[in-house]
Simulated assay, not measured.
Amino acid sequence: MAFVEHNAKTASTSAGGRVEDYVALLKPRVMSLVVFTAFVGMLVAPGDIHPFIGFVAILCIAVGAGASGALNMWYDADIDAIMSRTLNRPIPSGRVSRDDALGFGLTLSAFSVGTLGLVTNWLAAGLLAFTIFFYVVIYTMWLKRSTPQNIVIGGAAGAFPPMIGWAAVTGTVSMDALILFMIIFLWTPPHFWALALYKKGDYEAAGIPMLPNVAGERATQNQIVIYTVLLTITGFGPVLTGLVGWFYAIPAAVLGAIFSVLAVRVRMASGVEMKRRARVLFAYSLSYLFVLFVALLADVGLIRWFGTV
């Protein structure tokens, strides 16, 4: 406890910080996933966008995601100082003050939303603003510390980027954009609950009501299987709407089958073996989303270049 109080005091009084500390506030690994899914959403959307405008739009989405990360770290500095995987973040380690992180996050939020609205359209900017608000206020300030469904509802924040990319090109939100949203929305619970299964002690120490800590490991394992099945089914949505063809459908089927098998393997295990399998599932879930969206992008490209595939 003394260690935590020391870090909290240091974080509240330190100023400045190195460039790399401010980069860390942006959560660059999370940002990379946001940028990638937004980029795919932009490229698969019907219509054209000038390359420079597209680049600025992606930059704005990245900056908005980074702003969300900085504001999340500003608010969560107290629990970050407790959990092993977040202990060395810039604020709890004392390298950046909470006030500096707050100002940094608010400035980037205003810049990203305003610039995106000016260079593309205000629907895309409005979606970006709502995404930042949802992640910081609805998820970080409210859901994360109050309900074991925090990841389910809060997962919407991470599901908006492809929709924002789509809106930047078309100025609209279509059924295809909503399906891309739903794929990431349904992917989020099994992804994070797998992490929560083998990091249960961290969440318990920080007082965060993650599902394994509140409902137990067995209930979490069951929910992982349910959401994985729903994700696998939803993954075929772009095929049903005609956005893509078999070039996407085959990888989607294989990826979903592997995801489902790994989820069931987690469900059938317990103790140390369950945690090992949960770690494998967590790692695979990252590859799943990346490969699925690559297949989506490749299929749409083939359709536009060569006709129906």
Results as ranks from 00 to 15, higher is better:
1 M>Y: 04
7 N>E: 08
8 A>E: 11
8 A>N: 09
8 A>W: 08
10 T>F: 01
11 A>D: 00
17 G>Y: 02
18 R>Q: 08
20 E>T: 06
22 Y>P: 07
22 Y>N: 07
23 V>C: 00
24 A>G: 03
25 L>E: 02
25 L>M: 04
27 K>T: 03
31 M>C: 04
35 V>L: 09
36 F>A: 06
37 T>M: 05
37 T>R: 05
40 V>S: 02
41 G>T: 01
42 M>A: 09
45 A>K: 00
50 H>L: 05
50 H>G: 15
53 I>M: 00
53 I>C: 01
58 I>F: 01
59 L>W: 02
61 I>M: 01
63 V>Q: 00
67 A>T: 01
69 G>K: 00
72 N>F: 01
74 W>D: 00
75 Y>E: 03
78 D>G: 07
79 I>T: 14
82 I>E: 13
85 R>I: 13
86 T>P: 15
89 R>Y: 12
93 S>R: 14
94 G>V: 14
100 D>P: 05
100 D>L: 05
105 G>Q: 10
106 L>V: 15
109 S>Q: 11
110 A>V: 15
110 A>N: 09
110 A>E: 07
111 F>A: 09
113 V>I: 14
114 G>R: 09
117 G>T: 14
117 G>Y: 10
118 L>S: 14
124 A>Q: 10
126 G>V: 14
130 F>Y: 10
132 I>V: 15
137 V>M: 12
141 M>C: 13
141 M>K: 12
146 S>C: 09
151 I>P: 11
152 V>S: 12
155 G>K: 07
160 F>R: 03
161 P>Q: 07
168 A>T: 12
168 A>Q: 11
169 V>W: 03
173 V>F: 11
175 M>I: 12
176 D>T: 11
187 W>C: 15
189 P>N: 07
192 F>K: 06
192 F>P: 10
195 L>D: 11
196 A>L: 14
197 L>W: 05
198 Y>A: 09
199 K>A: 15
201 G>K: 02
205 A>M: 05
205 A>C: 03
206 A>C: 09
207 G>I: 04
213 N>T: 15
213 N>F: 01
213 N>M: 03
214 V>M: 04
216 G>W: 04
216 G>I: 00
219 A>Q: 12
221 Q>P: 02
222 N>R: 04
224 I>M: 14
227 Y>T: 04
229 V>P: 01
230 L>E: 11
230 L>A: 14
232 T>Q: 03
233 I>T: 10
236 F>Q: 09
236 F>K: 07
237 G>Q: 07
239 V>S: 05
239 V>I: 13
239 V>L: 11
240 L>E: 03
244 V>Y: 00
244 V>D: 12
244 V>S: 07
252 A>V: 05
255 L>N: 06
258 I>W: 10
261 V>G: 04
262 L>Y: 14
265 R>T: 12
269 A>G: 10
269 A>Y: 07
270 S>A: 13
270 S>E: 15
273 E>N: 09
273 E>A: 13
274 M>A: 15
275 K>C: 13
276 R>M: 10
276 R>L: 13
280 V>I: 15
281 L>P: 09
282 F>L: 15
285 S>V: 14
290 F>K: 08
291 V>K: 06
296 L>C: 06
299 D>Q: 09
303 I>H: 07
304 R>G: 02
306 F>L: 13
307 G>H: 07
